[in-house]
Write a protein that binds this DNA or RNA. Structure first.
Length: 820
DNA sequence: GTAGGGTTAG
């Protein structure tokens, strides 16, 4: 190599640059040679073309070689060359090496400092950029110039820093520089000081494209769509044309303000003026179309791109992921890897969400590993939250919790994610506990997402008083007009038995979307007010609100609970014919339930037989339930056979079947079901009931013996049972699946969670006051009977909300007409 | 040799 290089003496360095690239490491001989050559070269030609040399360094590796060359040739302290090196490293993204080089330079000039400051700003290490600025002021005798301020102003993280910087600008007299002025405008508008920004903008003696864009993007980043569009108009009137930057600023605002028309106009403008070839413009277009749910247009823009960068791929993947097409999104991710685009943190965020939608536990773990290996979990809270959410959605509560615990920084969304995780996996008490833990961290300020995650948990356990406290906070935070929070509150009041409050809230929130309508219709349904639910549905249609599949699930359930057969069938037809919604398993389940309860078992069975999709356990279960109510043993056994073909796990169905056998006196059948249940080692969903007394929710599990007032509760139940028996109560053992003696069966029935909760209510509230109980499963038939007696004996109203509906017990009668 | 205004997120 030495000899090769020796023969190159006097040759322009660029000529042997490919050769340098080929050398992976410098051997000692090569190092000497390089020194020899550069020395020799310099002797012949004083003006080296280092500018060209710099630009030929396309990666950090080559930059380091050049750096070595400069050091070896004794030029490392040359102020032009060393500043060039700082810039070179900064442009290649290696800011720490830029800093290292910067620190080595003994006599820095303002160019050197400016390069370093802008290097930090470019990689968004804003804090260091500002520090560097102050270091310049304090440690050097140099004065900042007009090039210093634009990056520093960009780096100001808050208005306090920003105002200080503005003072320096004024003090040094750079406020009229067009770059500095535009940076000031942008800074003020970024922090929402739009008035100040506008004033500065108006006072600018010269406005270039950058000034207009600074002002427009300031409005856009504030979500101030109207003002941004006004300014765009103003710009047009002054004869200034949009450039790619303007377009890219304005497109996200179109999506934000739901203005597809302006979006399309801007797209057409971009095509006409050839701006589409700008990668940023195409990327912004993909994002905008994705937000409008228009995947066809997003894909078309993507397909037409000549150059695609990481953001293009991230955008198209997110487009499909956010429009609930995880399969296509995953395919695109694989394609991206094939064209060797390295994924980044944002790709991983989409990936986590894709896997969450696919609810695939094995893939969850590989995504987690993928993210952890790259150290992203430690780097950014967003990806940590996304991974926790992924586990939450696939039902892995423990994994989600572990990810949460491992996060170096937790923000309000991390907490919200975990609260939602517990609430949506049926662990309402844990969700509430977690919320209390969150509130104890004063640095975490609850937001809209917090209310949306905690309110359903309160609804679930019937914590009305605590839910009302949240309502108070929501009003304080002016969020009561938010559709999602409002809907959660409607749902909470409705499910806690306060239908009037739910209604008055309903008429306060915006009702353009189906979301609040679905909630209020469902609330009336579970209260057994089917007529009112239908009336609301008609009101919804009059208001021109488009119902969705959820609306019809609620409506059908409402009709079913109130025995409105014709109306239910009408809904079922309207759904398909008027709104083109294909019935899902849930709709079929509700229809079978509706027909079955009303005694139209033949129609129900017929409907199942003609279903275009495979009936699942809930559909057969609905038929089985109807057979129990109407004592149809034959159809019941058909239903149970088919039911156990598709789901033999759910213990509730065995109870139902056992009860059907018992009602027709087939005791061997009861025994058969019992042994079947035992053989299959059924996994039981633990039944629990809750009651809120004095702002505190107590949760009782079946057979609970750990409650502090446990003894009193069982004593009370014993007294009650004796009184009930004297009034004619006979325990119905067919609701007990365990194969034990009758005494034991009676004990099992007595220790059902709903009875423990009722007994606790009786001993801890004033006589004759109303008792409200919440049960996570359907209320047991024997408990239903017993509660009727208890309401008579204690002269109390007892309201039990189970997983299906409200049961209102008064004077020994239940509002559901015993069709539980 | 140095600068401003631009797209994607839980």
């Amino acid at each position: 190599m030495f000899r090769v290089l020796q023969t190159c003496k006097g040759v322009h360095p660029l000529r042997f640059w490919p050769f340098l690239q080929a050398c992976c490491t410098f051997s000692p001989a090569a190092t000497t040679s390089l020194q020899f050559i550069s020395d020799g070269y310099e002797n012949e030609n004083k003006d080296l073309d280092f500018k060209l040399l710099f630009s030929s360094c396309t990666n950090v590796h080559l930059a380091k070689r050049l750096h070595a060359l400069l050091v070896l040739s004794g030029k490392a302290q040359d102020i032009f060359l060393s500043t060039g090196l700082v810039n070179l490293y900064a442009n290649l993204g290696d800011v720490s090496f830029a800093r290292h080089t910067f620190d080595q330079i003994q006599k820095k000039n303002i160019f050197t400092w400016n390069s370093m400051i802008s290097a930090y700003a470019r990689v968004r290490r804003y804090h260091e950029a500002v520090n560097c600025f102050y270091q310049l002021l304090l440690t050097s005798r140099l004065q900042p110039d007009s090039y210093t301020f634009p990056p520093v102003l960009k780096a100001c993280g808050n208005m306090v820093d920003g105002k200080k910087m503005h003072c320096w600008v004024l003090k040094l007299g750079f406020e009229w520089d067009v770059f500095v002025a535009a940076s000031l405008v942008h800074m003020y508008s970024r922090f929402g000081f739009l008035g100040v920004a506008r004033k500065l903008f108006n006072n600018m003696p010269v406005r270039d494209m950058g000034s207009w864009n600074a002002m427009i993007s300031g409005f856009c980043q504030n979500g101030n769509a109207a003002e941004a569009l006004d300014l765009l108009d103003e710009m047009r009137l002054e004869g200034v044309k949009m450039d790619p930057v303007t377009v890219v600023s304005i497109l996200p605002v179109c999506a934000l303000s739901d203005d597809i028309l302006v979006g399309i106009l801007v797209h057409l403008y971009s095509i006409k003026h050839g701006l589409e070839s700008d990668v940023f413009v195409s990327n912004a277009l993909i994002n905008m179309y994705a937000k409008f749910g228009n995947l066809g247009h997003a894909q078309r823009v993507f397909d037409q791109m000549e150059v695609r960068d990481l953001v293009s791929w991230n955008s198209i993947i997110a487009a499909y992921e956010q429009n609930e097409d995880p399969i296509t999104a995953l395919g695109l991710f694989k394609e991206m890897q094939l064209v060797r685009i390295q994924p980044d943190l944002l790709t991983a965020v989409s990936l986590a969400s894709i896997v969450a939608q696919l609810s695939d536990h094995r893939n969850s773990q590989s995504v987690h590993g993928f993210v952890a290996r790259r150290g992203w979990l430690m780097e950014d809270v967003i990806i940590g939250n996304a991974v926790a959410d992924m586990y939450a959605k696939s039902g892995s509560v423990d994994s989600a919790r572990r990810v949460f615990e491992g996060l170096p920084v937790k923000d309000v969304i991390s907490w919200n994610t975990l609260i939602t995780c517990y609430a949506q996996n049926g662990l309402a008490s844990e969700a509430i506990e977690f919320y209390h833990m969150m509130v104890a961290h004063i640095e975490i300020i609850p937001n809209q997402g917090t209310w949306v995650s905690i309110l359903p948990a309160y609804s679930h356990v019937g914590a009305l008083q605590q839910g009302m406290k949240i309502h108070g906070r929501v009003i304080k935070n002016c969020l009561y007009l938010d559709v999602f929070v409002g809907t959660c509150l409607i749902d909470m009041y409705g499910k806690c038995g306060r239908l009037d409050d739910a209604m008055s809230l309903f008429y306060q929130v915006p009702r353009k979307s189906s979301v609040p309508w679905n909630a209020i219709i469902s609330c009336h349904g579970i209260h057994g007010h089917g007529e009112k639910a239908l009336k609301l549905f008609k009101e919804m249609m009059d208001d021109g609100v488009k119902p969705d599949h959820v609306t019809f699930v609620s409506l059908l359930a409402a009709c079913s609970h109130s025995g409105l057969v014709d109306e239910g069938q009408w809904c079922f037809n309207v759904m398909q014919e008027k709104y083109g919604i294909k019935p899902s398993l849930k709709h079929y389940g509700s229809m079978v339930d509706l027909l079955g309860r009303a005694g139209r078992l033949d129609l129900a069975y017929n409907l199942i037989q003609n279903m275009p999709i495979q009936p699942d356990a809930s559909v057969w279960g609905a038929l089985l339930g109807a057979c129990r109510i109407h004592g149809n043993f034959e159809l019941g056994s058909i239903a149970s056979d088919r039911l156990f073909e598709v789901d033999s796990e759910n213990v509730g169905y065995y109870v139902l079947l056992s009860n059907i056998y018992a009602n027709v006196g087939k005791w061997e059948g009861v025994n058969k079901v019992r042994s079947l249940a035992r053989e299959r080692g059924l996994k039981k969903t633990p039944g629990w009931s809750s009651i809120e007394v004095n702002n505190k929710v107590d949760v009782f599990y079946t057979g609970n013996q750990t409650h502090p007032r446990c003894e009193e509760i069982y004593e009370e139940l014993e007294v009650l049972t004796a009184k009930m028996k004297s009034l004619g109560y006979v325990p119905d053992y067919s609701f007990v699946l365990q194969d034990v003696e009758d005494d034991e069966k009676e004990h099992i029935l007595t220790s059902h969670s709903e009875r423990l909760a009722i007994a606790f209510g009786i001993i801890s509230t004033p006589p004759k006051s109303t008792i409200r109980i919440f049960k996570n499963l359907r209320v047991c038939g024997d408990c239903h009977e017993a509660t009727k007696f208890i309401s008579r004996i204690t002269e109390r109203e007892i309201i039990v909300r189970d997983s299906n509906r409200f049961h209102h017990f008064k004077n020994g009668i239940c509002s559901c007409g015993d069709y539980w």
